[in-house]
């Protein structure tokens, strides 16, 4: 079922090495990208299917886990795909995330994931980060349709009250 296997340790190492610039210089700016702090406007509630999540988990295990880790927690030199990832992508239209995965990942073989695998990975990442699906309708593969959804911001925003401005 897995679409990819990368048996060479050298390619895994190349992946780790190539990831370095993404986190090595993350002194101050990473938090400001990907979201504006505002709510997601008129975006539709995100939907993805359980089958997509299961398929995405398989793609992830074969193509992504060797760098990003089985638990999506990344590492010292590899971006995580959970808490920090959520902060970077919250409120961003999902066509950008799918587009990024499609043209940049996996690092040792970018551009090799077919659209259905990319959509499944997005569904898997959303699910892993606690997003709930509005219906069991699958996440679309086409960018124009994906653009109508946004990466969900955390559900429990701190309330406006409770502190001085």
């Amino acid at each position: 079922m897995m679409s990819f296997s990368f048996p060479l340790r050298a390619t895994a190492l190349a992946c780790v090495m190539a990831c370095l610039p993404q986190t090595g210089g993350a002194w101050a700016q990473s938090y400001s990208t990907g979201h504006t702090g505002g709510r997601a406007g008129a975006a539709q509630p995100v939907s993805f299917s359980a089958e997509q999540v299961a398929h995405g988990a398989q793609i992830y295990a074969g193509a992504c886990a060797m760098c990003h880790g089985a638990d999506l927690d990344g590492g010292h030199d590899v971006p995580d795909l959970s808490t920090y990832f959520t902060a970077r992508w919250a409120n961003t239209p999902l066509d950008r995330l799918a587009g990024y995965i499609a043209h940049a990942m996996p690092l040792m073989a970018p551009g090799t994931l077919p659209p259905q695998d990319t959509a499944a990975l997005v569904a898997f990442i959303l699910h892993h980060n606690g997003a709930t699906s509005a219906t069991n309708a699958p996440l679309p593969m086409e960018e124009a349709r994906l653009a109508k959804f946004r990466f969900p911001a955390p559900i429990t925003q701190p309330p406006a009250s409770g502190g001085k401005p």
């Binding site: 993350a26 990473s30 938090y31 702090g37 902060a87 919250a90 429990t156």
Partner: peptide, 30 residues
């Protein structure tokens, strides 16, 4: 966990080695 709230301002309570490294890590996360 703090970054995932999308809040920009964070308080760190305590300045032992756990507080200090948490504060520096938070600064480095912007």
């Amino acid at each position: 966990h703090a970054a995932a709230t999308l809040e920009r301002r964070v308080a760190v309570i305590g300045c032992g080695i756990i507080g200090l490294t948490s504060a520096l890590t938070a600064l480095r996360a912007g």
